[in-house]
Design a protein around this nucleic acid. Structure first.
Lengths: 252, 252
DNA sequence: CGTCGGCTTGAGGGAAATCAAACGATGTGG
DNA sequence: CCACATCGTTTGATTTCCCTCAAGCCGACG
């Protein structure tokens, strides 16, 4: 794994971070599990003693209210750790749900605790994950609280793109996003109907096409412009417009 | 400080948690600072090497977008730690702002790191803070994404009440909330005008009165009922209706 | 071939935003 | 002490963004 996977954060920690990442991978490699769309990896209200790492597929933290309203709190992408919160909370307020067939690695709490007591770099890797999750959540809160439907969807598409590029999964502005429009609505706080209309409009305007779980960003500059007010400094610093094929350049 | 301050989380950690809390207090007690409404304790885009603990007053994490839209990401209440994220991120995406005159304790990164390398209980206390922040943010995301204006405001009032009761600052359903209605709007993702209307309606219906920075919950059961769908299991488990004056009873 | 889940589109309604203005407190300077 | 400015609250009128309801469509699958 390249150093570039953890960009822009306190550079003096980078080496340790990568080491922790690797050690964690090793320690988890023996417990590999598969899930299918719809599976609950961690259930609401049930205690869990396991921490996971996504290898491939799509997994999200979500909650369904009594009256059926559903909310996707955050998406996990390959290489992300999830379920770390189970360390502190006995009862999980929300569930971790599989949105598209996924492969994950798993490790038990006690084993993990042992590991990071002897290996500070593993603790750092976990702290880094928590920090990233937190940063992203701050952005979601701002988006949900203050952004229009169009801004939310544009932001979601740009943010996902950026994360996938970092993870080395996406190249030329096109990526697989195997969510239903309902899922997207639950993620950005809109109804399916409205998600569809916005998506359709973006498509008509030649910015993005989204069909059959595939996103194709045609005009990333224009899409980026819509998302920009909602992005934070870290997301602005790295829009590798189109991925590895051309030299990344900083906007603004 | 009582054990009851960290309720409901993995009980086997409680003792260590309290110890960490106390040690942290000791270590920070030498650097005490004051801020006034409007001060920026941590500025957007500026590196910080300090972690804070709120003693009294009101402090929030907030961000202002280029076009002036403002968003309050989360509120800190007395005893909370904040600025922990500066450990990992060099550049702060948002600012920590003082909303009502506050007293805080401060500690430098290197000193804190030293402390929790020798004292695991301090690391635990910090992890606990991060976990609590995260849990609360999940709830905000759900509220912002899926709740009506009334639900958001009711939830905010109930949540704040619950936290203040836990901190021992609030007794009989009445507490000081020295925010402007604009602040509240930025916190729950509404405009001032609409916040005012909802507040007014809740008041007319005899649920809450909010005047001059004082909240008086008159009908906590009814208010709770409005907030309930948005609360998580932890917040539901501890509505000490009205505090010490009457026997606390569980709703529903 | 029929059913089902997800997408698409239209029509209409409603919750919250926007625009606008008045009001009340608080503070400040003449 | 009063005139005046400022800041926050309150209320009304109007607009708009998004939701709700409803129905048709398409592709996947048994």
């Amino acid at each position: 794994m390249a150093h570039a996977d953890f960009p822009l954060h306190r550079p003096e920690l980078l080496e340790s971070l990568c080491r922790g990442d690797m050690l964690l991978d090793q320690a988890m490699s023996s417990d590999r599990r598969r899930f299918r769309r719809g599976d609950e990896i961690i259930q609401t209200g049930v205690a869990s003693d396991t921490v996971f790492r996504l290898v491939s597929g799509w997994v999200a933290r979500s909650r369904v209210l009594q009256d059926g309203r559903r909310s996707i709190i955050m998406m996990f992408l390959p290489r992300d750790l999830f379920g770390v919160k189970t360390f502190l909370l006995t009862e999980q307020p929300d569930s971790i749900e599989c949105l598209a067939d996924a492969v994950v690695l798993a490790i038990k709490h006690d084993q993990l605790r042992q590991l990071f007591e002897t290996e500070p770099s593993v603790a750092l890797r976990i702290a880094f994950q928590l920090g990233e999750d937190e940063r992203r959540m701050h952005n979601y809160i701002i988006g949900l609280g203050r952004a229009s439907a169009e801004e939310r969807i544009a932001t979601m598409l740009i943010e996902t793109h950026g994360r996938l590029v970092k993870a080395g999964i996406c190249a030329n502005g096109s990526y697989s996003l195997p969510l239903t429009q309902q899922d997207i609505g639950d993620l950005v706080g809109l109804t399916v109907v409205h998600v569809n209309r916005v998506l359709r409009r973006l498509n008509a305007d030649g910015l993005v096409s989204f069909t059959r779980g595939m996103v194709q960003i045609s005009d990333i500059a224009a899409l980026y412009k819509k998302a920009e007010p909602i992005l934070d400094a870290y997301e602005r610093a790295q829009p590798e417009f189109g991925g590895g094929d051309s030299a990344p350049s900083h906007p603004s």
